[in-house]
Design a protein around this nucleic acid. Sequence first.
DNA 1: CCTACCGATCGGTAGG
DNA 2: CCTACCGATCGGTAGG
Lengths: 192, 192
Amino acid sequence: MSAVIADNRRADLVRVAARLFRERGFDGTSTRDIADAVGMRSGSPFYHFRSKQELLAAVMEQGLVAGLPAAEAIVAGGLPPRDKFRALVRAHLETVLGEGQDFIPVLLYDWRRLTPALRARVQVLRDRYDQLWQDVVSELSAAGLLRSDSAVARLLLLGAVNYTVLWYQPGRGADLDQIAEEAVTMFLGSQP
Amino acid sequence: MSAVIADNRRADLVRVAARLFRERGFDGTSTRDIADAVGMRSGSPFYHFRSKQELLAAVMEQGLVAGLPAAEAIVAGGLPPRDKFRALVRAHLETVLGEGQDFIPVLLYDWRRLTPALRARVQVLRDRYDQLWQDVVSELSAAGLLRSDSAVARLLLLGAVNYTVLWYQPGRGADLDQIAEEAVTMFLGSQP
DNA sequence: CCTACCGATCGGTAGG
DNA sequence: CCTACCGATCGGTAGG
């Protein structure tokens, strides 16, 4: 019972930290801000996390762990390559731009704030994510739908999608479905 | 004479700040770090700049002012659309990834650290840069070389190129020419 | 541009 | 998880 409560408090910290880190950046958010937002005293976050950076890593890992199953299901599914690619792009946009999805934006914004040791730890999960993209890109390439299957092409593609976090505005301009469709058209052409 | 010396010191601050901001981020760099690196005392940067943020804005503006002429010359030149696009991408990669080019990466990394007033000021120069891309994209589209000329397509394209700042490593993997060629192939196809 | 300094804030800790 | 606290650092300033 008390363990459940403690876990909830820890989860509260991660969730609130994700929101504040996203809004103000890692350096722009104090551990006091986070403590206030969950109704703790200033020193109490350090009962749950050894350091501010451990909290940052927890935010990133939660985002990756939450996003991986959906992406893995899409990649393992039997959709035709073009549809699979669209579905993966759409799922990724939801993870990066969806309402209340603060975890992956924090990863994209503040990756460099992690210490080398923590970066290596989170990288393990990132690698699994990257591998899914590589699988789909290879599949597209094998089907003759992509102009290049080089590592550079994959990075350019992921960059285009990830960079949306800097310009997308909910309710203004294109929505997630339209952005996904536009990305598919740009990278694969308009005809199947 | 003394004005020249003062200008040099100011320029030193901007150049060194660009390097440190790029390496450690805006919040990860103290004004003392910058003062030390140019051989000043801790309070002296504030003789040249009213605030740390003014120095950040100066770094970004210097990067834009330095990069605009080359891009404008390319866009105004008479190259065929495909070659013009390749040249613009290549010039942009040089600005973002070239050796000693710390100014635009700082803009990409720490844009959000600017106060709203300073952001509006720097945005004027950014808009000129964005317009050049829009011109070239429209030209490509008019020539039937691009699959889409929507604003979203332009943003995806710029995102792919800008995001290289997060994965490009000099001397490892593709060089700038190869990345530019790969981008052209991905967005325009391999045949002219 | 330096000297000397200030108020504020910050991450983190000991002890309970 | 709170109380009470510390040492360090930071952006910025007055006066010269």
